[in-house]
Amino acid sequence: MNKTVNQKAWFFVLPVLLLVAFNAIIPLMTVVNYSVQETFGANTFFWAGVRWFGEVLQSERFHASLGRQLFFTFTILIIEIPLGVAVALAMPRKGPWVSVCLVSMALPLLIPWNVVGAIWNIFALPDIGLLGRMLNGIGIDYNFTRQPEDAWFTVILMDVWHWTSLVVLLAYAGLVSIPDAYYQAAKIDGAKAWAIFRYIQLPKMKRVLTIAILLRFMDSFNIYTEPFVLTGGGPGNATTLLSIDLVKIALGQFDLGPAAAMSLIYFLIILLFSWIFYTVMTRNEEQ
């Protein structure tokens, strides 16, 4: 039977296309336009060519922010993915505790990002915060507002607290979708817990874990609000991630040209990683 080709269906996509054009494509075009010009306000622009791109690419400040961003992103991925899988494995699959666990896991995800930053700021303050006072009370010299290592520890701990739940929920969804027959076969073969995890659970979770890694990568690479509210990028520039640095250049210094060039480089980095993850994900599906 021949398949009927009906291209009219594309017209149904038109409203979405218009919406995306207004909220994404037009601003992106404007950023491209700004990235090749210098402005002193009042809509007065002077052609600068690719100068801002060259400056950003050779700037130590950009290299440092990018390095911090990559360190942050890969650190939280290394912690959150195994931790999320471990928690999902420990969660019950049947019974009344399933709902309790799922709701508890979902709670951090429901809190607005700026509130998460504020909660952790108060929680970690060395003089009045529960965490800060407790750590100092047991003899650890902890002050996230003054010591860069402590600021990093707090920012990473906050992200792990906020976002591991997402990995847990995705991994759990992958786990509950495994039919009992697999476990019964493993039991007959006398498989140990590690073998069940390695040869049944992990392969079945591969797809959801790829989605989890992609989502966490994208989110953490774009992160702004939580670390900004918690540390403001400090002490000094210790926790100034790429997005915080970008906002400082664009809105703090009002250097729109360099900020636009930096945004486009930032965009290309995210686009490349997203494409790699998407390709890996769709290849897994095909296999």
Binding site: M29, T30, V32, N33, Y34, V36, Q37, T39, N43, F45
Partner: peptide, 15 residues
């Protein structure tokens, strides 16, 4: 459209 700060090279790029 002045706020979009169009230039001929960027217009050619998007074109």
């Amino acid at each position: 459209l002045t706020w979009m700060a169009w230039t001929w090279p960027t217009a050619a790029f998007f074109g």
